[in-house]
Amino acid sequence: MAILEVNDVNKAFGGLKALNAVNLSVEEGTVHAIIGPNGAGKSTLLNCFVGRLIPDTGSVMFNGKSLLGIKPHEINQTGVARVFQTPEIFTDLSILENVMIPAFAKLDGAFRINAWKTVGSRGEVRDMAEKVLVEVGLHEKRDVISSSLSRGDKRRLEMAMCLVQEPKLLLLDEPTAGMSRADTNNTVDLLQRVGTHITKIVIEHDMHVVFSLADHISVLAQGTVIAGGKPADIKGNPKVQEAYLGGSHA
């Protein structure tokens, strides 16, 4: 069954057509990779899923309900979490707090005034957070203020912040960009290990990562989906090679 159904989405910035009649169908429980050259419109597409942008035309259905016109926090509450291209974390807070906050969103909803109980008295929240931190390997550093983390750790933290919510759909925008080989391998390993039941959409440049993770690949170029299919099919597709994989990548 398709958990996310994208139909004929168009988005233009002034004269620039960033998305051109994009269709996409993401099967529940799979990892769906979106690849394509820089400026192809991949991040723009994700922005249309989480309420950061509203497409000019077209529809985005999540579990049969439209995601268009509702606020980012409402979209998250329906079960969509996102890791950004540049990590968005709470830099003034400790790692543990960073992960507890999304856990609170999951348990208490979008708004609740619980001003009298202490954070510490909510043991279950802490447990959820610590469990995920163990999984992503940040448990040791849980009391460190997150602004001091390395780039790789920041990404890992942001992933933990999404995983703790156990979303139905997890969007990852270039999760390994700028990472060393070792960090990249760690991330791939992490994504294969945790949240295996979570449907994921991964934007990625690193073909090694794409082919180790993806069940399905869509190729975006200049705002249009030029190809889609199983990794093996994409590898052999001459159109894709031309648009993207061509030359040294092949």
Partner: peptide
């Protein structure tokens, strides 16, 4: 003191640090 130590206070500090993240984390800030 109670507010600062409460989840509510934690959310307020989180809003100060990164309002965007708060929204995409499911909070109506």
């Amino acid at each position: 003191l109670r507010i600062q130590r409460s989840p509510f206070g934690m959310m307020l500090r989180a809003i100060k640090t990164n309002q965007v993240r708060m929204n995409y984390t499911g909070f109506n800030t």
